[in-house]
Amino acid sequence: MSVTPTSRLRLAVIGAGLGSGPHFKSLQDLTAEAEVVWVHTRDASRLATTPLPQGAMKTTRLEDILEDASVRAVLVLTPPNSHLELVQRLAQAGKHVLVEKPLEIDLERAQALVRVCDNRGVLLAVMLQHRLRQAATRLHGLINAGALGQLISASASVRWWRPQSYYDQPGRGTLARDGGGVLITQAIHTLDLLLSYTGLPVRVMGMASTSPVHTLEGEDCACALLHYANGAMATVQATTAAYPGFPERLELNGTLGSASLEAGVLQVAFMNGQTLTVGDGQGSGGGADPMAFDHAAHRTVLKDFIDAVRHGREPAVTGRSALAAQQVIGAIMASSRTGTPVVLQSLTP
């Protein structure tokens, strides 16, 4: 059924910084389904320099969004440490929410954010767009169908590059604002995708450090070993000190075949001799320009969120499902500090 302009979902956007570009481009593509009513930032100068959706009203007053009963959903694109407070106020006003990754700066605050949405009965989605790329969803289907058999081992590699000028931006890579460095800001996408395939490990051993290449409070290099209940193991490598930046890569090895996912292309080799290739190569923002990627996956997540709000169903990338990556990142950093493995506990609903 076609969507008429009068049935478009009315929503607002909070934040117009570096990461807002793909969201605004996606919303422009989705004008037949959603109308941006408000765009809010605390810094009025951002509103003057950022291309905004046609017809959107600019405001530095959060109350304009909270008090507008016609606004059913809000995109929160602000720094991670602001998410919990904003979502608390939005949920109290009955607004459904999509937040830019990560949920928050640590697991405790992320869990509180999820709980407040649950308690208020509003939907919570997260922009972890790697999950909804064509090749990624095809791999999900193969795993769910048992086509790769039992998991034996896996690996996730994120070898990216960021110049020092990236970390010279106020707050970038700090514990207070971002929650850390490469793991929670860059590698979280690939780690989240890995965990969506493998589930949560039972034990994590990790090491993290800041290389001589960068000056920042958080880590720009991290490695980890994940151990699963069935005996399977996975390795994680993440850095923003690998010049000039390389495509992220994920590998899964099973008893019936192996799969690799790199730069949006899935390649599968089955033990029966069959092979499969799915997807087109795509940029990831792994080099000096962090925004050097197509916004199609953002658009897919936003389209799904809009549909979920309009039809009262769960979004494809829920806030609760995003907790796994936050839990593993916290475990890697804790293990690095103590030099001992961290045993993971199942998160309570």
Rank of each mutant, 00 (worst) to 15 (best):
P212I: 11
R89V: 07
T239M: 04
L52E: 06
L175K: 10
W160K: 01
T340A: 13
V97Y: 07
T210E: 02
G281T: 15
N144V: 11
D304Y: 12
R313P: 01
D64A: 06
V213T: 14
I143A: 03
P5L: 08
T239W: 06
E33P: 00
I152G: 03
A187G: 07
S26M: 02
V158E: 12
Q345A: 13
H298G: 00
V87P: 00
T31S: 14
K25W: 04
K58M: 11
G17V: 03
G231L: 12
T215D: 11
G173A: 02
M127Q: 09
H311Q: 13
G312S: 09
G17M: 01
T277L: 01
T340P: 00
M271T: 11
P212Q: 08
L77T: 12
R203Y: 00
L75M: 13
G94E: 11
R109T: 07
H130V: 10
A48D: 14
P163F: 07
S321T: 14
S258N: 14
Q111H: 06
R172D: 00
Q134S: 11
A242P: 04
R162G: 02
K101F: 04
I14W: 05
A324S: 15
G149Q: 04
V74D: 03
K58G: 00
L77M: 12
T340I: 02
T59N: 00
L86F: 10
G281W: 14
T31Y: 09
L30F: 06
T4G: 08
P51Y: 09
G273F: 08
S336M: 06
S336N: 08
L256Q: 15
R115D: 11
Q345F: 00
P290Q: 04
